[in-house]
Amino acid sequence: MDINCTEKELFILKKIAHSAEELGMDTYLIGGFVRDKILKRPTKDADIVCVGDAIHLAKSVAKRFMPEPKVSFFKTFGTAHIRLQKHKLSESSKALPSGKDSEGAFDIEFVGARKESYKYHSRNPAVKPGSLEDDQNRRDFTINALAISLNKNDYGKLLDPFNGVKDIGKKIIRTPLDPLQTFSDDPLRMMRAVRFSSQLNFKIEEKTWQAIKDNAYRITIVSQERITDELNKIIASPKPSVGFDLL
């Protein structure tokens, strides 16, 4: 494994990997969990992307825990979620090691790899199935496009097509693709850039920042609820002044 995980996390990831192998489905750990592990930040949830039916994978994974957790799914979007509590992190023949490592809940989101396309007046994309590469391309920032393989042939390998690890080392926020298009497609990403800058004490890369300024007027297509959610996360960050200075 190219990142350091706790015993609890490895226990969970192995179960996901076993289900994915049984289903013949390429599957990856992606996004914030990978980023935060590299930053040595605490983790309490994980995003899983698979090349196939994410709901099917989630149901298969749930069956590997006792008692079986509920699978919440959204058929329209092809996504699913399970929450693992302390008492669910054991098998009849093998219990998870006790102690702080087994405390609290762990949330897992499952999504099928996909391509997205946007209409100018909406941030809700048209979605169709895609590859891991397609899914990494649609991510908001390079630091969130990092993936770890859960596949048998290269289990634990870090997949970093946009040099996200280097950007973490440089403490910069940068989009994987053209920032003008990235923010025009989904203007909420501009708020997310500011929020990550505030949470992580990272600097927004120059071209990315210019694209935010050029697309600032597009924030009007984002709902007030989503904007407020990002503002609340900025307020809760270690240095909210960083975010509000950028705003």
Rank of each mutant, 00 (worst) to 15 (best):
L200I: 06
P238G: 07
I30W: 00
Y28K: 05
L200P: 05
E116V: 07
K166W: 11
R114G: 02
D167K: 11
K37C: 02
L247C: 09
I38H: 14
F183R: 00
T228C: 01
K157D: 07
L89S: 00
K239D: 13
Q136K: 06
S19H: 03
R35V: 12
K119M: 10
K59E: 15
R218Y: 10
H56D: 06
F65I: 01
R192G: 00
I3K: 06
T142F: 02
E103A: 09
P129W: 04
K88N: 14
A17L: 05
I235H: 01
G78E: 04
R41M: 15
E230F: 02
V111S: 04
P67A: 12
S237W: 00
L246Y: 14
I55S: 09
C5Y: 13
D26S: 13
E205R: 02
L247R: 03
P161H: 08
F202H: 10
F183L: 08
I108Q: 04
H87T: 00
K213H: 07
L89P: 06
I234R: 01
E9V: 05
G156W: 00
I221G: 04
D185V: 01
T79G: 04
K119A: 13
K37A: 12
R174F: 06
T43K: 12
V71C: 10
S117Y: 09
S117E: 15
F73L: 01
G130C: 11
S131D: 14
D167G: 03
P97D: 05
V49T: 14
M1W: 08
S122L: 10
L96F: 11
D26A: 14
F74H: 04
P179F: 06
V242G: 03
R189K: 14
K88W: 00
E225Q: 13
I212W: 04
S197V: 01
C50L: 04
G156L: 05
I204H: 09
E91T: 12
H87A: 00
P238D: 03
D140A: 14
G112H: 03
S117W: 11
A216I: 13
L13S: 01
C50Q: 11
I172G: 15
A236D: 14
I148H: 06
K170N: 12
K115W: 02
M191P: 00
D185L: 00
F202S: 12
K70Q: 14
R226K: 13
A211K: 11
S241Y: 08
F244D: 06
A211E: 05
G130E: 03
K94V: 02
S92W: 06
P161G: 12
A113P: 02
E225M: 10
S98T: 10
I234Y: 02
I235E: 15
F162Y: 15
D214L: 12
F162Q: 06
R64W: 09
C5M: 12
D36L: 13
K44H: 13
N124D: 15
L89G: 02
D160N: 13
D36R: 04
T79R: 03
D214T: 03
S122Y: 07
D178I: 05
R139C: 12
Y28D: 01
F183C: 07
N144V: 06
G52R: 07
S72D: 14
K115M: 09
T76P: 08
K119G: 05
R195C: 09
D154F: 08
Q136L: 15
A20D: 01
K37F: 08
D36F: 14
Y155S: 02
